[in-house]
Simulated scan of single mutants.
Amino acid sequence: MTITADNAQQGASHPYRAMRDVIQAMDDTLPGKFEITKEGIVHDMMSPGGPHEVTAARISRRLEKVMPDELLAHNGTPDVEDEPEGIMRHPDVMVIAWTDLDSEASIDPRTLIAAIEVVSRSNPDNDWVGKMRDYPLMGIPVYAVFDPRTGTGAVLTDIHSTPGGPRYATRKDFVYGEDVTIGEWTISTRNLPRYRSDAAEQH
């Protein structure tokens, strides 16, 4: 679901701040994850537990086993926010230094080493299209996508300028079972869970 900036503004002087107010009002009352994009507010209905959260947890643990102690693969709060661009995102996993995470406010996206997303069954375009556009615009140098629907993924790097704005120039696709390199660190993608088909879930 997307709520446009015009719908969220409702007389406020700044559409982005108005959308932030909408999110704060809804965050404690509705399930799922709320984010702000150039198009408006995105509400991603994630199911609690299951392949999505298991995938994020396993990626985080595998990265932290190979990264230096001053870094972590964080899968909690807060949000990553670029107010001048009018974007607020919440990566499933963010690779960041402990010192940069020590903030009471939102995280500056330019302090992230990498953002990692596990594709949602309910809104895959949010990860494959929206964040592929927003993350280079926010200056996040590495974006890794894991898709439990298909058992595939991609790592995007090398931000460069295009007529449509900053975009990733390099994309390396992988299939589950292969090793994947995110930033400077290589991890296994073996034994990552897949979403079951709708037919299987009904039996």
Rank of each mutant, 00 (worst) to 15 (best):
T2N: 09
T2Y: 02
T4E: 02
D6I: 01
N7A: 02
A8E: 05
A12L: 05
S13Y: 08
Y16A: 03
Y16C: 05
A18E: 06
M19V: 01
R20I: 11
D21A: 13
I23Q: 00
Q24S: 11
Q24R: 15
D27R: 15
D27T: 11
T29A: 04
K38D: 05
K38E: 04
I41D: 01
V42Y: 07
M46C: 00
E53N: 14
A57N: 10
I59E: 11
R62G: 02
E64S: 08
M67A: 08
A73D: 06
P78Q: 03
P84N: 12
G86P: 02
G86D: 13
I87A: 02
M88C: 03
H90G: 02
V95H: 05
W98F: 10
W98H: 15
D102A: 13
D102R: 13
I107L: 10
P109A: 04
R110T: 08
I113D: 04
I113L: 11
A115H: 07
A115Q: 08
I116R: 13
V118G: 09
R121D: 04
D125Y: 07
D125P: 01
N126E: 13
D127C: 01
W128R: 13
R133C: 03
Y135P: 00
Y135T: 01
L137K: 15
M138E: 00
G139C: 06
I140Q: 07
I140N: 02
I140W: 04
P141L: 04
A144Y: 15
P148D: 14
R149F: 11
T150I: 12
G153R: 14
G153E: 11
G153Q: 14
G153K: 15
A154I: 15
L156G: 05
L156Y: 14
H160F: 00
T162M: 04
G165Y: 08
P166C: 00
R167E: 12
Y168A: 06
Y168Q: 08
D173W: 14
F174S: 09
V175I: 10
V175F: 11
Y176N: 15
G177W: 09
D179P: 06
V180C: 08
E184G: 12
E184A: 10
I187N: 06
I187T: 10
T189S: 10
Y195V: 14
Y195D: 11
D198V: 08
